[in-house]
């Protein structure tokens, strides 16, 4: 797989495109063509493209962190509840009249704290990642309920929507620009910096990495904290997209994020995967969710289609590997 840490290659791995990513690109093109024909071109409406891009960005940003976590051999199933609790914290700030600029740090810090708690349980508490984040999934959701009570936050200032969605330099909303910048930074980081390569090393063989003097615990802790921060960013984007905080905000979001990463070819056993794949995976998930209404069918089908696409995509990778 060309997309794994290419030790020895002179080219940074993020420029290479693997067979898996090629397949995903073909998938994106085919589905896009299918939807645009099926919808008589309505797919290309400005408002639909904006909606698609925003949704993809909201999935993509936490998926960047999730990719890094999965590369280290971990997983975080709590991102949906994290998004909800961060939205509660940030939304409360908005409710108290705090402006966008001053509230942004609230989102980021709240996310960082929640991600740090996950990371600390996993690294210092030695709780397996699935278990730790399964636990915090329900704890964070309960916390959101307790803070919010029976009340929904509806007074999100219009400036959030204005900043995240309606301001569109070169026709692309700010939220999407943020996602693109973040993923580019992380790609360079993973491919070019020693720390990035350490992440792959941990996923491939944690003990060997430790023996080689790589600070495994600290890197893992950083990965979970980073994911928390990115969830904070996604929460802010999400409030721009639909400015209301409910106690259930973000429920099930973790599955969308994990689906995007898995579709992108990152392997849950750690050590293999790429952010380019995650980007394509997020676009595919967005397309599938976007397409159903445009094709005039019930949204129930999106689950079936998504499930089949994941199986086909992951299965074809195995078939190809067997053929090699």
């Amino acid at each position: 797989m060309a997309s794994t840490a290419s030790t020895g290659s002179r080219w940074p791995s993020w420029i290479n495109i693997s067979a898996r990513e090629l397949l995903l690109i073909i998938g994106v093109i085919v589905i896009t063509a299918g939807i645009s024909i099926g919808s008589h071109g309505n797919f290309w409406n400005d408002s639909n493209l904006t909606n698609l891009m925003i949704n993809t960005a909201i999935t993509l940003v936490p998926a960047i962190g999730m990719t890094v976590i999965i590369l280290t051999g971990g997983i975080d199933v709590s991102v949906g509840s994290m998004l909800g609790l961060v939205a509660v914290a940030g939304g409360t700030a908005f409710e108290h009249g705090v402006g966008l600029a001053a509230a942004t740090p609230v989102f980021l810090v709240a996310g960082a704290i929640l991600g740090f708690v996950n990371g600390a349980l996993i690294t210092y508490g030695r709780v397996p990642p699935v278990i730790a984040t399964l636990g915090t999934l329900s704890v964070y959701r309960a916390a959101a309920f307790i803070f919010l009570g029976n009340h929904w936050i509806t007074m999100i200032p219009p400036s959030v929507t204005q900043a995240m969605v309606l301001t569109q330099p070169l026709g692309i909303p700010i939220a999407v620009w943020i996602a693109l910048v973040l993923i580019a930074l992380c790609m360079v980081f993973l491919a070019r910096l020693p720390r990035g390569r350490h992440i792959f090393a941990i996923g491939n063989n944690e003990n060997a990495a430790r023996l080689n003097g790589i600070p495994v615990e600290r890197i893992k802790l950083a990965a979970y904290t980073l994911t928390g921060v990115l969830v904070g960013v996604a929460a802010l984007m999400s409030l721009g997209h639909s400015p209301m905080v409910q106690t259930t905000t973000g429920t099930g979001f973790e599955l969308t994020v994990i689906a995007a990463v898995v579709l992108g070819g990152t392997e849950l056993t750690g050590g293999r995967g790429s952010l380019l794949g995650t980007l394509l995976g997020a676009i595919l998930v967005g397309l599938v969710q976007n397409g159903v209404v445009l094709l005039h069918i019930q949204p129930f089908w999106s689950g079936v289609v998504l499930g089949v696409i994941i199986l086909v995509s992951v299965g074809s990778a195995t078939v190809r590997r067997a053929a090699d």
Binding site: S39, N42, F43, N45, S47, N48, N51, N55, S238, H241, S242, M244, Q246, T248, T249, T251, Q289, N290, V292, V293, L294, H296, P299
Partner: peptide, 16 residues
């Protein structure tokens, strides 16, 4: 019972 889903669905309806 989810405002984000309702937003997305309406967006798609407007485009469709």
């Amino acid at each position: 019972e989810d405002v984000t889903k309702a937003t997305n669905i309406t967006n798609q309806l407007i485009s469709a």
